[in-house]
Write a protein that binds this DNA or RNA. Structure first.
Lengths: 344, 344
DNA sequence: CCCGTTCCCGGGAACGGTCTCGAAAAATAT
DNA sequence: ATATTTTTCGAGACCGTTCCCGGGAACGGG
């Protein structure tokens, strides 16, 4: 079955030359006679020679592989980002090794360790929502392995970052709700040690303040997305003495589920309560009413972070780069309280 | 920055012993004095020694890595399957290298090649919808690399397979529509060289025949899912001389989009036309009306195929295994024409 | 006291390439 | 013809492990 594959030594023996010469021919170096080179290449093709990547890896002390650590693949945002990463990596001839932290710090740490020990050339990370420390990234620096954060970045670490304008877009989204007439806007804010969540919440608060609306803690839900908790949050919000007339959800799934529950309770969207999502999933267009959301350019973020990482791999002394990818507010029916706007 | 990492040779030199002895101590073999072993391990810990995976890989001619090739990560079915795969691989101490074919045969072939040449220990594949041949899998057999197909299997190849009961569930789904009173059921069938599509279509046809309904080619749409084509299909179906009163969609996204279009045209679901999806995405519960669908146990499929692959890796002479994972029909409002059933 | 085991350990080949160095051969200059 | 440069190639170290083999010490039995 698994018969010995042909090595450089075999070729050398067959042609009665040294393996150095064979290596030269095959790796396309110049100091070799065209004729011998031709002969070698021909035999190599004939015998279907393929270089042993493992040997090359050992010799070069690198693997031509970049590691990617994301919270989870089922999250479409990350799934799409992975698409962008793989596209760029493919074009650069690099392999991609993906692992998921499943939103767990320990898993993230273990994945990182296993990547370091399998000598990836660089690592792309979007940290788990549990991760509120940064010591597990230190080994990367010790070994000189380039690191780029994307979306869920870790501010403690002086590494390249690719992120969206979370603050600005949260501000814009909140202000949009205000313009539509919302006075009491609730927000699902996510865990506050996460860079993205923190900035979004800041944007939300500043938008309220700028418009002279009170910032009330009772309207702020500090929690990550979890399908089975939405019902609980909905009940909580509805039963407040002054229930909100607008909700800025943490993502579209939460928003859609929230809408579903609110509708069941007889609330009209957006008249009684406007709902704004996040991520602009395809589904937004198909739910009833169609869901306003924030377009998060995930594919581009993945591609950009891969590009930056590859730069770091190629030129080891580059300064960390911080790249901003702009988000966009997509207005649909779930937040259109003002009829005039529907004409647009 | 990237200072030399400590090797076995360093430890040997520092302790004035041979590297063979150090290797013995660290790899936990028995023929070594407990005292020296202790000394070595202590120094190793102190100097933060980590074995060089690359050297081990070369020596062992394996990488402790399994390769996974899927059509695309944004497809939730595959994203979830990857979850199952990684879970099992983690527990077995194996790394996972994922790449996407993006539904392209050439990409699939290239990915396969790059995995073979980076010496993965085994490969898990769900073929692209373009793939209607199997020659690109031959190198795996030549090199003795175990291969397991899941979901989108390739029948030409005598390898282990994990699949769902596509025929049976399509039969059941179709019959469910018939029971609900549908007489003219359209189906989105997918490309017929795909094992899954072919079997689903067979199930659909047999269900019609068993219930003495005609099988009409005009009701069969041979196409893969693509958001921008759904509108076209919808128009086509509505404008048929005898438009269908039931649609069996290729997946939930297609179904939801289809529903959206049908509703816009003033059709009532399920009264005028029932819609059945596939995959049972979360969204099914939140659209209006809620979408009946087929639960496809993707996580389990991933886990099962990884288990089988690992078996093959550990015991190289195992016979191919074919494992069936059962799907389940989930009935919701989009297909409930008979009011009595709503009570259940 | 000798000899066969057992226990520990060191030497060194091997994995399959790359790369440096120097030498032989060929080409060119003097 | 000789000196010099250039071209082409071979020998062998090296990357960091594993592992086979053999040798010496300790140990026990005779």
């Amino acid at each position: 079955m698994d018969k010995k594959s042909v090595t450089i030594k075999d070729l050398a023996r067959l042609l009665n030359i040294s393996k150095s010469t064979v290596s030269r021919a095959l790796s396309g170096r110049s100091d070799i006679h065209p004729e011998t080179k031709e002969k070698i290449i021909q035999l190599a093709n004939q015998l279907n020679y393929e270089p042993n990547t493992l040997a090359i890896n050992l010799k070069q002390q690198k693997t031509n592989t970049i590691g990617v650590i994301i919270p989870e693949t089922v999250n479409r945002f990350f799934a799409r980002a992975v698409g962008g990463i793989q596209k760029v990596a493919d074009m650069a001839g690099l392999n991609v090794m993906i692992s998921q932290s499943n939103e767990s710090y320990m898993a993230e740490k273990n994945n990182l360790h296993s990547m370091v020990s399998s000598r990836v050339d660089g690592v792309l990370v979007s940290i788990s929502r549990e991760t509120d420390r940064s010591d597990h990234f230190k080994p990367l620096f010790d070994k000189g392995i380039p690191l780029v954060f994307f979306d869920r970045i870790c501010e403690d670490i002086d590494a390249s970052q690719v992120f969206t304008d979370n603050y600005e877009i949260a501000f814009e989204g909140t202000e949009h709700l205000i313009v539509q007439g919302c006075k009491r806007i609730a927000v699902m804010a996510g865990p506050q040690h996460l860079y993205t969540s923190r900035n979004r919440l800041r944007g939300y608060k500043d938008a309220l303040r700028k418009n002279n609306l009170p910032v009330l803690e009772s309207y702020i839900i500090h929690s990550h997305y979890s399908s089975d908790k939405i019902e609980e949050y909905a009940r909580y919000l509805i039963n407040l003495p002054h229930p909100p007339d607008g909700i800025f959800a943490i993502n579209d799934y939460a928003a859609i589920e929230m809408m579903h529950i609110l509708k069941k309770r007889g609330l009209r969207i957006p008249q009684d309560i406007a709902v704004l999502g996040f991520n602009n999933e395809n589904m937004c267009r198909f739910v009833e009413p169609s869901l306003s959301s924030i377009e998060h350019p995930s594919y581009e973020m993945g591609a950009a972070s891969a590009e930056i990482l590859i730069n770091h791999i190629r030129h080891h002394d580059l300064k960390p780069e911080k790249r901003l990818i702009k988000s966009k507010l997509i207005v649909r029916d779930s937040t259109r309280k003002i009829p005039e706007l529907q004409v647009l």
